[in-house]
């Protein structure tokens, strides 16, 4: 069984490349939605223990938006996309202008806020997933996105529980979307189930 923590340089590079393409797809999807050019940077792609993710996001009590997708098809696993509430607010304003939900609406997860955020999460997450599918040639599906707005620790702990029988590590792709003065950071995490990482590496020819 291949584990994230055992990957060699070449295998990591292949996964990083998928991360870059996925981030590019996500920026293109955002550009189409807003009708303006959205650039992106990928400052960081790394493997890290999921329990360290809340620290990465600014501490366990940091208010974040989390979008969860189950992955199935040729391989199984989990996707978690996270951004801070402040950055989620910026995206809403870019997309919806004056119609954007307020911070309070986001925190209380009213109907407008949750549907808008679910949609954004869905579009961004599936951008990364389609990069993975394209690169590997594997047929992949995902579940309907489940969203949560809460403390980073609480959101990550749920996913950690789900995966604790498989792995404690995630592939983290940090992406910064740049639209005029706004910089929005999204954290995309891929957690393959036992055996699925091997399927990815085999499909990439880097076993």
């Amino acid at each position: 069984m291949v584990l994230f923590e055992d990957l060699n340089e070449m295998q990591l590079d292949a996964l990083k490349e998928i991360g870059n393409i996925g981030a590019g797809n996500a920026a293109t999807a955002l550009s189409k939605m807003v009708g303006k050019r959205v650039n992106m940077e990928v400052p960081l792609v790394r493997i890290l223990p999921l329990k360290d993710v809340p620290e990465w996001l600014g501490g366990p009590e940091k208010e974040v938006l989390g979008v969860y997708l189950g992955v199935f098809g040729a391989l199984t696993g989990h996707i978690l996309f996270v951004m801070t509430i402040d950055d989620a607010l910026k995206i809403m304003r870019i997309l919806l202008g004056d119609m954007a939900p307020s911070r309070d609406q986001i925190l209380s997860m009213d109907e407008l806020a949750s549907s808008a955020m679910g949609e954004i999460g869905n579009i961004l997450s599936s951008s990364y997933l389609s990069a993975l599918a394209d690169f590997t040639g594997l047929h992949l599906n995902h579940s309907v996105p489940a969203i949560a707005v809460d403390m980073a620790g609480a959101i990550v702990d749920v996913v950690l529980i789900e995966i604790s029988q498989h792995s404690d590590y995630a592939l983290l792709i940090e992406t910064v979307f740049v639209e005029e003065e706004d910089r929005i950071t999204g954290y995309f995490m891929l957690i393959p189930d036992t055996g699925s990482l091997e399927i990815i590496l085999q499909a990439l020819g880097v076993v």
């Binding site: 189950g70 949750s114 609480a154 749920v158």
Partner: peptide, 15 residues
Amino acid sequence: GARMFSGADTLFDIG
């Protein structure tokens, strides 16, 4: 023991 994600099925009923 919260159920954090809305829209998910029983997957997250672990709480």
